[in-house]
Simulated assay, not measured.
Amino acid sequence: MMEKSFKAMVVSEAGNKQYRRDIVQRQIKDLPEGNVLVNVHYSSLNYKDALSASGNRGVTRKYPHTPGIDAAGVVAESTDPTFKIGDQVIVTSYDLGMNTAGGFGQYIRVPAGWVVPLPDGLSLRQAMCYGTAGLTAALSILHLVNHGVQPAHGEILVSGATGGVGSIAVSILAKQGYTVAAVNGTTDRSDYLKSIGAQRIIAIEDAVDTSGRPILSERWAGSVDAVGGDLLATTIKSISANGVVTTCGNVASPDLPINVYPFILRGVTLVGIDSQNCPMALRQKAWNKLAGEWQITQMETVVEEIPLNELDRRIDKMLARGSKGRVVVNML
């Protein structure tokens, strides 16, 4: 076993339901058990990481803890023949960064079943430009495509479009020839949304129906939703016949105030996206798409790279809803 210390962000209880974040030295021997030890080169910041880093017990049960649900790096040790020292790999989701020490440390140790070989066409840094957000966006679009939603069928609505999942979904859909309508945030970022491929910008007040009607005029061929709540309900009621809505977030609300009419009168399909535990074959297919025909050439426009010592400030900014696009953490 490798004997080495490494840098990591550690979140610990400070009393009175307060939590503190420190960059400390950890020992590899103290990492959890697993088949594969990975030297993390890059991670990324997700909303779930911000929750874990602020003491949210719904995400992380025990502290002190190192968050980071995304990691890309090089295999340093492996007891599984699938991986050898020097292999470049991606680890996202499962329990990484939730209750297993995550990618905000320079080393992680995980089960081999969590590890995805880095696809040809992606660098480690590019993989973290996508991260769980990119994987989630790719899974969402795969479901739209697999259900037969084509560019000619009409506009695709993307909610939470300034966030990580939404930004990547807008960019991929636009690249594939879809007409994308993006829901703007409470802060006007229409210029940003247009720059990544949105053809139409929808204000939040225009995307949420308050009439209480059980079904609305057909408006969208499909949707990638990352918000939930009333916006998702309105979207479902506005989808064209046999359209598809994917949902992956609940930042607005986990509740869905809707009836069955869109489903039984229009054949609307609602697909939940579980990027955390999706099957490995589907996970690899999504990563291969991101490395190939869905790769976003203008990815740098939605990505900001920071060092580990700037992560604390960016977590606070994300919790205050002040983030847009993706934040990649350079762990080297």
Rank of each mutant, 00 (worst) to 15 (best):
F6P: 09
G121D: 13
R200T: 05
P67K: 00
T297F: 01
E205L: 04
G58N: 13
D191H: 07
H65S: 11
I196P: 15
D206V: 01
K175V: 03
D80F: 02
G267L: 10
V38G: 12
A133Q: 05
D120L: 06
V11P: 12
V183Y: 11
Q276M: 04
A291C: 03
A127C: 01
I23Q: 09
K4W: 02
D274R: 00
D209M: 05
K175R: 09
R125M: 08
I258F: 07
V327F: 01
L256E: 12
A233F: 01
Q295L: 03
A14E: 14
T234F: 06
Q126M: 07
T235W: 06
V11L: 08
W287P: 06
T79N: 13
R21A: 12
I215D: 15
S190P: 13
G222P: 07
L270W: 00
A252S: 15
E300G: 05
T235E: 13
A71H: 04
I264Q: 11
E305A: 04
N242P: 05
D230R: 08
D95C: 04
G160D: 02
G113V: 01
R57N: 08
Q106V: 00
C278N: 10
M299P: 01
A286W: 03
Q18F: 08
S140C: 07
V158K: 10
N99Q: 10
A233M: 06
A281P: 04
D206S: 13
A198K: 09
S159I: 00
G249T: 06
G197H: 07
N277S: 09
V329I: 15
V115E: 14
C129L: 00
V74G: 14
R109P: 06
A101V: 07
D87K: 00
L311M: 01
S195F: 06
L31V: 10
E155M: 13
S217R: 05
S52V: 04
D312A: 15
I69K: 07
A14P: 03
S223T: 09
A50P: 08
G34M: 04
W294A: 06
T79A: 14
A72W: 00
V38D: 03
N277W: 00
N16F: 07
P119G: 07
P111W: 02
D191L: 09
H143N: 15
I202Y: 12
G103S: 11
P111S: 08
H41V: 01
D274I: 00
V251R: 02
E155P: 11
V251C: 14
T235V: 08
L51H: 06
K62D: 15
P151L: 10
M299Y: 02
T132M: 06
Y130V: 00
S78V: 05
A233K: 05
S171W: 02
G131Y: 04
T186R: 15
Q106E: 15
V11H: 07
I239P: 10
D49I: 05
F104W: 07
L193G: 14
A133W: 05
A174V: 08
G58I: 00
D49E: 09
S195N: 12
K175P: 09
S240C: 10
W294M: 06
V227D: 14
P151N: 10
I85C: 08
Q298N: 13
S211N: 11
T297L: 10
R125C: 03
I156L: 14
C278F: 01
L122I: 09
S52A: 15
I236W: 02
A53V: 02
V91L: 09
V74L: 13
L231C: 11
I196N: 15
A207Y: 03
